[in-house]
């Protein structure tokens, strides 16, 4: 506090190292300090009350057997975590989240990259996109604008075995034998949910990748063309390496969505949680344990487990992002 360097941040081009502060300037600097406090305080107070403090409390609660009645939380150490390891429904939820994590981000990024490449390759100049690119980008982006709850309601209807869209289309094209009770069969339900996640996620990442591809100088693609590179080679050797950062960001976001999946499962699948817990996810277990069974300590332990799962995933996904074999635009 003593070194009151409270001037508005100055650009590098300004004269370096101003001489010791003159008394007249000092007065203004103190006002600046008041401004900083006033500007930060509302956001900071709300952040501490509604974000920082709940997160901190969750770690403590996970070590208690609290059931919601004030003053009755007993410290039980790691007992909740021991119970988690033997809780078959929670283990099923971990398995389901991991399956989503394994397949959903890869599929979404794959389709997104493929379509973004198609949009780019269709144009004569190698830039700007195929005829109708604007139309495609608008339509592909639609699901991104809908609440995940709305998407869940929509697809709950679409998967309905009797009057749903999917079986209706299958029957109409003579494939009625493939009609299924999509959300009620244990072996299918999780994949049905996953398909919805992919459906709603592709558009966003397609737009993202498309913008990144447009940012690549077209000389690079022209050079590859002159060197005789075909579409595949161009994609693997040029597009993908140059989009590495974007793909990584996409992977982190999609991975976090895969570790969530709460709203879709809670709204779409029977139970909720699916037949035999086949679509149970960690968030749903936590929600039910806390707000239906009132076991707040145990639910907090689930939250901590989910947190560490997310943390480990993020660290793995971001590992080596500063590696020296990165491809940069010259």
């Amino acid at each position: 506090m003593s070194r009151a360097v409270l001037t508005p941040r100055v650009e590098r081009t300004d004269p370096p190292a101003p001489p010791p502060v003159k008394p007249k300037r000092r007065r203004k600097l103190n006002r600046g300090y008041g401004f900083v406090i006033g500007a930060l305080l509302p956001a900071l107070v709300m952040h501490v009350v509604f974000v920082v403090s709940p997160y901190a409390q969750a770690f403590y609660l996970s070590l208690t057997d609290w059931n919601g009645v004030a003053g009755t939380a007993n410290f039980v150490g790691l007992a909740n975590f021991g119970r988690l390891a033997g809780d078959s429904l929670f283990l099923a939820s971990i398995r389901n989240n991991l399956l989503l994590l394994l397949l959903m981000p890869a599929a979404t990024i794959g389709i997104g990259l493929f379509l973004a490449t198609m949009i780019q390759r269709g144009s004569r100049t190698g830039r700007g996109g195929v005829r109708g690119a604007r139309f495609y980008r608008i339509v592909f982006f639609f699901p991104q604008l809908l609440s995940v709850a709305i998407v869940a309601v929509l697809w709950g209807f679409a998967y309905n075995p009797n009057n749903g869209l999917i079986n209706g289309v299958l029957r109409a094209v003579g494939l009625g034998g493939l009609a299924r009770s999509w959300l009620a069969e244990p072996g299918l339900a999780l994949f049905a949910v996953m398909a919805v996640m992919i459906w709603s996620g592709v558009g966003f990442y397609l737009v993202l990748f498309s913008a990144a591809i447009d940012g690549v100088p077209k000389e690079i693609y022209e050079a590859a063309l002159i060197d005789g590179a075909n579409g595949w080679t161009t994609f693997w050797r040029i597009t993908l390496p140059l989009l590495r950062d974007n793909v990584q960001v996409a992977f982190v976001y999609l991975g976090m969505a895969a570790l969530d999946a709460f709203a879709l499962v809670q709204i779409m699948t029977v139970g909720p949680g699916g037949p035999d817990g086949s679509t149970e996810v960690m968030g749903l277990s936590l929600y039910r344990t806390a707000f239906e069974y009132g076991k707040f300590g145990y639910a907090s332990a689930m939250g901590v487990a989910l947190f560490f799962g997310t943390l480990v995933f993020a660290l793995i996904a971001l590992r080596g992002s500063g590696g020296k074999d990165r491809t940069e635009l010259a």
């Binding site: 360097v5 508005p8 941040r9 930060l40 952040h47 709940p54 929600y287 907090s300 947190f307």
Partner: peptide, 30 residues
Amino acid sequence: RYRFPGNRAVYYLFVTSQFFPTFLALVPLF
């Protein structure tokens, strides 16, 4: 645009919370 002690700490206090799952905060937040 202002330099003051703790600037980075406050910034990271805000920014890092984006990467915490909301579920973790749910019970105490309620």
